[in-house]
Design a protein around this nucleic acid. Sequence first.
DNA 1: TTTATATTTAGACAGTTAACTAAATATCGT
DNA 2: ACGATATTTAGTTAACTGTCTAAATATAAA
Lengths: 88, 88
Amino acid sequence: MSLPTLTFKALADPTRRQMLERLRSGDLNAGELAEGLPMTKASVSHHLAMLKQAGLIRVRRQGQNLVYTLDATVFQEALQWMMGFLKD
Amino acid sequence: MSLPTLTFKALADPTRRQMLERLRSGDLNAGELAEGLPMTKASVSHHLAMLKQAGLIRVRRQGQNLVYTLDATVFQEALQWMMGFLKD
DNA sequence: TTTATATTTAGACAGTTAACTAAATATCGT
DNA sequence: ACGATATTTAGTTAACTGTCTAAATATAAA
């Protein structure tokens, strides 16, 4: 699947966008990310897997926790595709 | 469904992005849009309906044809959401 | 007004997604 | 090594998506 397709699919879910927004303020572990979301931790884990597959987040283990970090690199390509429309 | 969700969903399909790209060069009717796409006209029509629902295109009748026009207005909101990530 | 052309709508089907519960895995502290 | 905590994986289910074929609708042309 092409990179922009993966990115747009990942962004097409409000829960995932919300998780990304919270990661902007700093890294969070899975439990913290699940707090306040109206779904089970298993479902949150599923969304995290999709964001990771899309390359929008990275993960590292820190003791008992898995800490997630925003990786905006991949945003660029999707963003540039969109910019092309408004330009010229 | 929220506006950015609809927009991202619409953009999450390569066929739809391709159709939007072709509309950048000027208006096209459904038949023209279907040319070269590896699917039936019925399927193309279905994609057009999704793009219209998302507010990314407009349609008007011109004789026998339905002519589609790009409407980039709605791009702005999704784009701004994305820009927020790279900014600051 | 009958026939052809353009396009959509309806119905079916396979594959994907988002959610759940329950079970598995990994690390930590004792 | 054991029990607690953190998180994922597995399996299920309902809803959604992308595609098809066939039928319906709308306009144009003869």
